[in-house]
Amino acid sequence: MSYLDTLKKSPDLVSPGISACQGCGAELILRRVLQVAGPNSIFAIPPGCMAGAGVVGWNYANGQKTPVHITLLDNTAAFLSGLSRIYEKKGRPDVNLVALAGDGATADCGFQSLSAAAERGEKMLYLCYDNEGYMNTGYQRSSTTTRGSKTSTTPAGTVLQGKQQQQKYVPLIMAMHGIEYCATASPSHMKDFIEKVEKGLAASKKGFAYIHVFSPCPTGWSFSSSQSIEIARKAVQSNLFPLWEMSSGKLTLTANPKPLPIAEFVQGIGKFKGLSPQVLEEIQVVVQHRYAILQKLAD
Rank of each mutant, 00 (worst) to 15 (best):
Q166M: 05
S188P: 05
Y134I: 10
Q166I: 07
G121L: 11
Y139M: 13
Y210V: 06
R141V: 01
V197S: 05
T145E: 00
Q166V: 08
S113R: 03
I211F: 02
G133W: 01
A202I: 04
Y139L: 13
M135S: 15
P187M: 03
K168R: 15
S115V: 02
N136L: 14
E180Y: 07
S142E: 13
N131I: 00
E180W: 08
G102A: 08
L127K: 06
M124P: 04
V170F: 11
T151H: 09
T106V: 02
T145V: 02
T154N: 14
V197W: 07
S142V: 08
Q167N: 12
P187T: 01
A156G: 12
S115E: 05
H189E: 08
G138E: 10
H189L: 03
D103A: 06
A209T: 06
A118D: 05
Q140N: 12
T137Y: 01
A185N: 10
R147F: 11
A183P: 09
L125H: 08
M174K: 07
S149W: 01
E198L: 11
G148V: 06
A105N: 15
Y129F: 14
K163D: 04
I173D: 09
G178Y: 12
N131H: 10
G138S: 09
N131Q: 07
E180P: 05
A117C: 07
M135D: 15
A116H: 15
Q161K: 12
G121H: 12
T153K: 03
A202H: 02
Y134S: 00
P171K: 02
I179Q: 08
P171G: 03
V170N: 08
M176E: 15
G157Q: 00
I179W: 10
M174I: 11
Y126W: 06
C109W: 03
G133C: 02
M174H: 07
Y134K: 00
Y181F: 15
Q167A: 14
S188L: 04
Q140M: 11
S204D: 10
G162Q: 05
A175K: 11
K168F: 15
C182H: 11
M135W: 09
T151I: 08
L114T: 06
A183I: 05
S186V: 10
M124H: 11
P155H: 03
T145Y: 00
G102V: 09
I211Y: 03
A156F: 13
V170W: 10
G162H: 06
Q112Y: 12
M174A: 12
A203P: 11
Y134H: 07
H189I: 02
N131E: 04
K205D: 05
M190K: 07
C109Y: 13
S115I: 07
Y210S: 10
G102N: 09
Q140Y: 04
E132F: 09
I179C: 10
Y126A: 02
A203I: 05
I173S: 11
D108Q: 01
K150S: 13
C128Q: 13
A209G: 08
Q164T: 14
C128P: 05
M176F: 10
C109G: 04
E122F: 01
M124T: 06
Y139E: 08
E198A: 12
I194C: 09
K168Y: 14
E132V: 00
C128A: 08
C128V: 15
T144H: 01
A183H: 09
Q167W: 13
E122W: 01
Q167R: 14
Y139K: 08
H177E: 14
A118E: 06
Q161Y: 01
